[in-house]
């Protein structure tokens, strides 16, 4: 026999409430970090032990990569055009105009290419993975895999993460290339900067590791997006509503992570 005793909660005051809230957020953060770390480790182990099906990776590569090329072409060229126009406005007559070439190339390769491509992939790939795995959780398909002695990390998580790590650098390389090209065209049209001058300016400030920097960012984002989306998808609770909720949370989580990681790059790598 259990009895229900209603308790009147005393208002703990704003300061206590704030600390309680902060504590809860901190513990959630730690929980997510732990979950992501252990998922990453399991994927590494599965990969090293060759437990990942090559065909699944190819399939995911196709879904994430090939199908994302059109949108990446669009965002990449827009990034180049916008930077070029923006830079063109801010040029003063005291600066040699070929500087614009350097500005566009550096901005596209170091920032816009990787970040915009990653943000696009959060919506196109990340949300899809979370919703897909979330649906599998709520319809007990994940349980079914386990009951049949199969490991969802090997079968579902690893192919997605491996494909992401390969795909994103390739997509960013495409975005960088079309961004530079579109930026060059835009510079020609808006401030009348010739292609030779544009490329001269670009070469003047070009470091060989700029491309490496761009692709390293892409690699890190390419790991973060599928890792977070798989992690969130597998944590889904409740029915269809739960899938919607986790998908939204996953998109927020991925977007913030991309922006924070992006901010951490210059101090870590540009020194």
């Amino acid at each position: 026999m259990s009895t229900f005793t209603p308790t009147v909660a005393r208002d703990p005051g704003p300061l206590t409430r704030w600390f309680a809230g902060a504590g809860r957020r901190a513990s959630v953060t730690v929980e997510h970090a732990g979950g992501l770390g252990s998922l990453f480790w399991k994927i590494v182990v599965a990969t090293v032990r060759l437990r990942v099906n090559f065909r699944d990776v190819v399939e995911q590569f196709f879904i994430m990569g090939i199908q994302s090329v059109p949108i990446v072409l669009v965002t990449g060229s827009l990034a180049g055009i916008v930077t070029s126009q923006q830079g063109g406005y801010q040029m003063t007559s005291a600066m040699p105009n070929y500087i614009l070439g350097s500005l566009v190339v550096q901005t596209v390769v170091l920032e816009m290419g990787p970040v915009l491509t990653a943000i696009v992939l959060v919506g196109r790939v990340g949300a899809r993975i979370t919703a897909e795995l979330g649906t599998m959780v709520v319809s007990e398909q994940i349980d079914a895999y386990q009951s049949l002695g199969r490991d969802p990390v090997e079968l579902l998580a690893a192919p997605r993460v491996i494909a992401g790590v390969i795909v994103l650098p390739l997509l960013v390389a495409i975005a960088d290339a079309v961004g530079i090209f579109a930026g060059m065209l835009a510079a020609n049209l808006t401030v009348g900067l010739g292609n030779e001058a544009f490329l001269y300016g670009a070469r003047l400030f070009w470091h060989s590791w700029d491309l490496l920097y761009s692709l390293t960012k892409a690699l890190v984002f390419g790991l973060a997006i599928p890792l977070i989306s798989v992690h969130m998808g597998l944590r889904t609770k409740g029915g269809a509503e739960g899938v919607g909720l986790t998908t939204t949370q996953a998109v927020m989580f991925m977007t913030l992570t991309i922006l924070i990681l992006d901010a951490m790059f210059p101090p870590l790598m540009l020194n």
Partner: peptide, 18 residues
Amino acid sequence: ADVRCKVGYVFQNAALFD
């Protein structure tokens, strides 16, 4: 793993792989 190999589980809503 051995337990899961020995046991067959019929899920309430079938839980087929879509």
